[in-house]
Simulated assay, not measured.
Amino acid sequence: MSDTAITHPTLAGALWPATRGNRLLRAALLAVLGSALLAISARVQVPFWPVPMTLQTGVVLLLGAALGGRLAVATVLLYLAEGALGLPVFAGGGGPAYLAGPTGGYLAGFLVAAAAVGSLVERGWSRSLASSALAMILGDVLIFACGLAWLSSLIGLDKAIAAGLLPFLAGEALKIALAAALLPAAWKLLARR
């Protein structure tokens, strides 16, 4: 076994193990449920300062953590495909133009973050609060790095930071804290079961 091999199950794997007979159906159902959860999280706006907060980035991080890298990426790809086809799954609607708009980089960052967080969790980064927090922080940084790179190509770096990062820092810190705390707590509950 190589040192990059997956050695820890994901929450989804612990709750619903994949077998030869259910692997494809399990993956499809989890991806559909995950993309629906992402669509709902894009529409939920929580009053927050200085801007209202959606739950989208937190759900992306939790999907990576619960599903693992490959299945989380498949789930986010399904979500993006639904939006590209015009389904109103994004915070502001849907359609191909939405993917090329100011938030397109953040949406692409969802893929990168889901892969990274999922990969880290598959290597045991969900068992403690510290490792969960580090995985979530890294995932969030990747979302915002992709988002800001794209947004800055449209409006310049200074404006991108002012409009696409700074107003969201407090909300992201809260979502990271919640997501990081949920993982080890879920594992403890599962261990008691």
Results as ranks from 00 to 15, higher is better:
A65N: 06
F168I: 01
T7R: 13
A180L: 06
A149F: 13
A28T: 15
L38D: 04
G95L: 07
S132C: 01
F168Q: 09
G21L: 13
A27Y: 09
L55P: 09
G156A: 12
F168R: 08
G13C: 05
V117E: 02
A163T: 10
F144K: 07
P102K: 11
T54S: 15
G118K: 03
K159N: 12
R26L: 11
C146R: 04
G105D: 05
G109S: 02
L148K: 06
L80N: 05
L25Y: 06
P102D: 05
V141A: 14
A72M: 00
L183H: 07
P52F: 02
T7G: 10
S128M: 06
M53D: 06
G13S: 08
M136D: 00
I143F: 08
L169D: 05
V141K: 02
T7C: 10
N22Q: 03
T103Y: 02
L190R: 15
A130I: 10
I40L: 15
A12D: 14
G92Q: 11
A177P: 10
L71A: 14
A133E: 02
L151C: 07
G139C: 02
A72Q: 00
A74E: 12
G164Y: 07
A180T: 11
R123L: 13
L77S: 04
E172Y: 10
L138P: 01
S2K: 08
K159C: 10
I161C: 07
R20P: 01
L24G: 06
L55C: 10
G21F: 15
L138Y: 00
G86D: 08
T103W: 03
L78M: 11
